Computed example of a mutant assay.
Amino acid sequence: MGRAARFDPMDSVKVPLKHQSALVAVVCMVVDGGFVLLDREPLPQTLVVLFLTLAVDAMLAGPARLSLWVAAAQAAVPVLVLVTIGNGIDSNDAGLLIAGYRAGAWLRGGPAYAALGLLSASLVTSMILYDYDVLYAVLVAGKGALLPWLVGRYTTARRAYLAELEKRSAMAEKDAKAAVTKAITEERGAIARDLHDVIIHHVSAINLHAGAARLGNPHGDPKLTNSLRAVETSSRAAMVDLRHLLDLLHGEKPEGARQPGLGNLDELLDGVRAAGIPARLEVRGQHRDLPESLDVTVYRIIQEMLTNALRHGDASGVTVTLDYAPDSLTVASENTAGSGDDSGSVRRGLVGIRNRAGMFDGRTRSGLDPDGRTWRTTVTFPLEAS
């Protein structure tokens, strides 16, 4: 197989420039050629001047690196016509203007000034040969050579200035993004340190004290022993989640590490049951695999639902329902509301659920049923139709 052609982003600029240069050359040929024909001079002289004019105007379609030679050719034609044919016939006036602009826009240093000198000398010489005085000749050179040359210089300088502004803007945007990234990284580092130094320390202490209390009471109340064991299990699970969170905050993701998902629901429900609260799971519809990020989100939402039921519900338990539809997944929990003041923590829990659901265009509904006692939270996620 042949090698694929490499894409050059400048090609999309070069092609339009070539087209424009060709168009400028054609317009100059039409305008200058038209004036030559309108002068109505004898046919032999007209044909010679027309040939010279069209030839040098056609050179305007050439590459920028030849601008000095194009200017020299344009400058030579008026003088050559006056010396060989005489007065009374126009030649390449439009071509001279465009050659001056090209020299100012595309040439630098010595070649640019050489082109300006050639064009100016041609116009001054032509005016003197036409018997005009020197001042008039200089003014014509300023209008026909210097002014287009300066416009070309200005256009290029302005283009370079705008490119520099765009470059600086891009660099400033890049620096701003880097500063934001650095600030986020530092803030994550501070949060990670606080989690490690404070939260993990306390959770570890809870685990150790619960274990010590359970071992120190081998023949005690079985319910108390089960509760202490549940505290140990929950605290160890919390330690695993916290350490995983620390890895995420530090930008690390150890191989094989993954966040819990719907496959870990049984462990989550067992933890609630161990605390003495009945927890039930109902699955409806045809089970289907979810994207990993959505799977983790649904798990965390159910975790928050169970936490709210433990904190603010009574001892009758909580029911979690997973309802799989062809184009959606509905997660719901219901429990009997307790009698305590739970408005603040409930609101925070529901905000967390709503925010997690919103990341996947999920819709959240929560509140008391018409009986005034059953609290129901429902989250519906859209899925691709199966």
Rank of each mutant, 00 (worst) to 15 (best):
G62L: 09
D323V: 03
G104W: 02
D266C: 03
A103L: 03
V24K: 01
R284H: 05
L38R: 07
G216W: 07
Q20E: 11
A163S: 15
M127D: 12
I200K: 02
I353S: 03
R188T: 00
H201I: 10
N355V: 11
L290A: 01
L281Y: 10
V346I: 13
P218C: 13
G2C: 13
P16S: 02
L150I: 14
P78C: 09
R102N: 09
V346T: 14
G220K: 15
D39I: 06
M10K: 13
K182P: 00
N87K: 12
A172D: 04
L322C: 03
T336G: 00
V351I: 15
K143Y: 14
E252Q: 15
L262V: 14
G104R: 04
K253P: 02
T297G: 03
D175V: 10
L368Y: 04
G100L: 07
D241Y: 06
L119R: 02
L54A: 10
T125H: 05
G88T: 07
T84D: 07
S122Q: 08
V36Q: 03
I353H: 00
P16V: 14
M1L: 15
L246N: 09
A237S: 13
H287C: 07
N217R: 13
L208V: 10
W106R: 12
M29G: 06
Y324L: 04
L150N: 08
R236G: 04
R363L: 06
R158I: 13
A183C: 10
R6H: 15
R373P: 01
A309H: 02
D8L: 06
D266K: 15
L37W: 08
G362T: 02
Q74H: 05
Y299D: 02
E267D: 14
S169R: 11
P63W: 01
V49H: 01
S366H: 06
A385N: 13
A157R: 08
A183P: 00
A183Y: 05
L147S: 12
S366P: 01
A192H: 02
A257H: 08
L383F: 09
A178H: 08
I191N: 02
R376Q: 12
G251C: 09
A210W: 00
Y299E: 00
Y161W: 05
A337W: 05
E384L: 12
S366M: 04
L195R: 00
G117K: 02
S204L: 12
L249Q: 06
V318W: 05
L329P: 02
R243S: 03
W149H: 07
I89F: 00
G285Y: 05
V124I: 11
T181A: 11
I353R: 01
H219W: 05
L268W: 08
M29H: 03
N335E: 05
D295M: 10
R153V: 12
I353T: 08
D221H: 12
A72E: 09
T185G: 05
V31C: 13
G358N: 12
R40Q: 13
L265A: 07
I353Q: 00
G251W: 03
L43D: 11
A112E: 06
T336R: 08
P111W: 00
V26F: 04
L265Q: 07
D266N: 15
D32C: 07
T233D: 12
D289W: 00
P260L: 06
G142E: 12
A210Q: 04
H196T: 12
E252L: 11
N87R: 15
R193F: 01
